[in-house]
């Protein structure tokens, strides 16, 4: 069982959270009509074997979106911060 340290609620079991996928892929600006950039954002992933930046929502807790750095081989979690503080790609709704 992963234990995710929510910055608001403390360390909780993974089953309280919903996975939101790769956090590295932010969407282009809505006015941007470039097909390649949109294909890349929607469908293409780095899918690293090792350090992965990803989103989780504390669904059964504070309902905040979190930005988690986790290793995809060992599953060890390096850091958890609120998604809105984490990266320009991840907005308040986790996208």
């Amino acid at each position: 069982m992963l234990r995710i340290a929510c910055p608001y609620c403390g360390e909780r079991d993974q089953v309280e959270f919903t996975y939101g996928g790769d956090a590295a892929s932010g969407f282009p600006a809505l006015a941007d009509a470039d097909l390649d950039r949109w294909t890349d954002a929607v469908f293409i992933r780095d899918n690293p074997r090792g350090e992965h930046r990803e989103l989780w929502q504390h669904q059964h807790g504070c309902r905040q979106w979190l930005y988690v750095v986790r290793d995809t081989v060992t599953h060890a979690i390096q850091s958890v911060v609120p998604a809105r503080d984490a990266s320009p790609a991840a907005g308040a709704d986790g996208r």
Partner: peptide
Amino acid sequence: DGYNSYGQRGDLP
């Protein structure tokens, strides 16, 4: 299991 993994071992949930 529901999150990206190359771990080849499953989790309890």
